[in-house]
Write a protein that binds this DNA or RNA. Structure first.
Lengths: 204, 204
DNA sequence: GCTTATAATTTGACACTGTCAAGATTAACA
DNA sequence: TGTTAATCTTGACAGTGTCAAATTATAAGC
């Protein structure tokens, strides 16, 4: 039941079907949403038969997990790159992080939905590989916010863990409201980000 | 193509199939989630044939809209009842509102997901009836937060609309993190709520 | 009370979905 | 070159939402 041939040698019939499926799936998800992803149409896109997919992924959920994992890798890379701005005040860095977080989620709405949405996590359908990639993202978030707390630019009266949960909830909630188009138009993203920063910073 | 017989006289073959379907659907959604709702199994529950449903709802999405509408009615009722606590300081009322919001969403996770989730709003599948019931909920939220601003217990430097969007995002995000089980265990709901209140209030 | 019109419900059917078992094809390796 | 093992295809099954036509039960008119 080992579904992958390892990691290096991926040149079989198709060449690299696994990667092709992942790419096509990510593309279709981003353009039409997770629910609109059909394995059969996906196979058509790649030019392969219906159930060829099952030699590379256990089932549909495993494919979604892999796409989400790719998303986390990208998310972490972008976040870390954004964090390396040496000549900035801590307040500016916080501001840049907020804007960056929201803009990334608004630019990849369907992927964000897949990564942080209910289906994968709540129903316990996240496999071990995804968890291994996702938890560093959570850790990154925790470190970031703990750092702000230590720099004294956000409130310090609450435990770092709670503070992290609430601040992340704020970012996550704003991202979702914008993505879902619920009472938050995407034209005023920067305004809402600025307001968020003002609320997070100690003195408004 | 008038799909309902009005509103008063609902005594036909089944008695009131529309209400029975709504009730059974709401129950199944809350126990197993929106994605697990099958129209055929739903018909079995009510003891009726597959496509009897189509004489009361245009399609599956219309049924989901109706369930969501019921949810908004309930949400508004609970929220308004919670707001009528005369012998309380404004700060206490804010605290009670936060705890109430989170607890309601945690007690009705699947319904909350249906009401404020992506599928209905983002994809423009919300019909007019749902919009008519949902927007008062948004208005209620706006009034609430504007009131806090006027009472001076939260920041006033930002426009009320932006402040409302960000504060609601905070509540919404916290609710989702708890519901989805993403990095927020449901055992510490009250702690997280307290932390949220501390962040919202002017001085921490 | 009987007939007629109308609404409610059922049955049959269609296209679509994810998934599996068995067979065919092709690459890797001795 | 012959064997093995991986990859891919075809056929099939149960399940889904939805529609058209046929059937049944209710309400209205005389």
């Amino acid at each position: 039941m080992q579904q992958t041939t390892g990691r290096g040698n991926q040149t079989y019939h198709h060449g690299d079907l696994r990667a092709a499926l992942l790419e096509a799936a990510a593309q279709r998800i981003e353009s039409q949403g997770v629910d609109a992803l059909s394995l059969r149409k996906l196979a058509d896109d790649v030019g392969v038969s219906r159930s060829a997919l099952y030699h590379h992924f256990r089932d549909k959920n495993a494919l979604l997990n892999a796409v989400a994992a790719r998303g986390f890798e990208q998310w972490i890379a972008v976040s870390k790159a954004r964090a390396n701005s040496p000549d900035m005040t801590p307040e500016q860095r916080l501001g840049q992080f907020v804007h960056g977080y929201i803009h990334w989620s608004a630019s990849n709405p369907q992927l964000y939905d897949l990564m942080f949405g209910r289906p994968i996590w709540k129903t316990g359908q996240a496999d071990d590989q995804l968890k291994e990639i996702a938890y560093p993202a959570f850790q990154f978030m925790l470190n970031k916010i703990t750092q702000w707390q230590q720099e004294g630019i956000i409130g310090q009266s609450m435990p770092a863990l709670r503070q992290t949960q609430v601040i992340w909830a704020t970012l996550h909630g704003l991202a979702r409201l914008i993505i879902d188009g619920v009472y938050a138009d995407s034209e005023h993203i920067d305004d809402m980000c600025d307001c968020t920063v003002a609320m997070l910073l100690k003195r408004d």
